[in-house]
Write a protein that binds this DNA or RNA. Structure first.
Lengths: 186, 186
DNA sequence: ACCTGAACACCGTTCAAGT
DNA sequence: ACCTGAACACCGTTCAAGT
């Protein structure tokens, strides 16, 4: 049996997917779990702390996704698989994606959430390092290549979610744009 | 003398800079302008429509910034200047930057706001086209190079605003990362 | 056409009280 | 330790009324 705290986090995540950030009210979350509208205050300091817990769980999931991709022998395939899985997460959970990467209140938090976000980026950095050790862009500092790939991946996802560029065919297939960047790094 | 509508937009933009999105309540905006708390409804359908007007004005400003950069003779310098000005806008107005590029309610709007967003991207696309005509990455489709540069620029800005990667030195100087990408396109 | 004041439903948060 | 119910301040939105 899951604890009330865990059930609150799951309910909040589900509401994010269902109706976006504004649908995730403490009252709605509490109602889904079946407790009174202020029971969540016994588990989280305030609404932001509850959202942070959702974000932290998702960062952990993303880290696991990247670690799993790292098990693929060919670093080139591993990196492409990581990018693909990252896009799949964003498309499946757009509101939660924005919570993790574009919410100012969440971004401003330190502590365990910041740790989780760092671990996700580090797991991605390891994929990039393996890619470079495999003979790609070896002359470039790994930190910069990681920043370039991570930012491009996020920028493409965010613009696609926002529908920016949709007209005029716009961004087109964002996976293809990442592959173009990887080709430039060859 | 500015119209009430224009004063409402200015006041909303100022509140964004001062306290972020949550500070931009209809009541606060109305108070700054000196009208009753529901006078804004005579000028905008609802709160989102008012925010959209703020976003539209900012997109127009960004378009002007890109057009101005296009007047620089050397396409390489022009593009770098555009990127630099884009980052300057985001750093100066972080909450408004997110409104334009990462707010789901704003992104979902069509009409004149979508037009304005498209014009901004097109102005950037022209800078990229000139850059390519000048002898860079000529073999690559302009639409993809534009998507790559626009997404990378946005991703870097958004991650910097979110503070993601700040520890572990993180992204470092995001201008340098864009310049690295431009070097790869050489 | 533009504005005001009252009212309503909803929300985050606090508090006193219960087990 | 965990939960409930009442209450408060605040917000978006609507409505009837005024000029």
């Amino acid at each position: 049996m899951k604890s009330t705290r865990e059930r609150l986090i799951s309910a909040a995540a589900a509401l994010f997917d269902k109706g976006g950030s504004s649908a995730v009210t403490l009252r709605a979350v509490a109602q889904v779990v079946g407790v009174s509208h202020n029971a969540p205050y016994k588990h989280f300091k305030d609404r932001n702390a509850m959202l942070a817990a959702v974000a932290e769980a998702d960062f952990a999931d993303l880290t696991a996704v990247f670690l799993k991709a790292g098990a693929i022998p060919k670093p080139d395939t591993a990196l492409k698989q990581a990018v693909s899985a990252f896009f799949a997460y964003g498309r499946k959970h757009p509101a939660r994606y924005r919570l993790l990467f574009s919410d100012p209140d969440i971004a401003a938090r330190g502590g365990s959430l910041e740790q989780a976000a760092m671990q996700t980026m580090q797991a991605f950095a390891r994929l990039v390092a393996a890619y470079q050790e495999n003979g790609h862009a070896q002359e470039l500092p790994s930190r910069m290549v990681t920043a370039l790939l991570y930012a491009t991946m996020h920028g493409l996802m965010d613009l696609e979610l926002g529908g920016r560029g949709k007209p005029q065919k716009g961004l087109g297939d964002i996976e293809a744009v990442v592959h173009l960047l990887l080709r430039l790094l060859r």
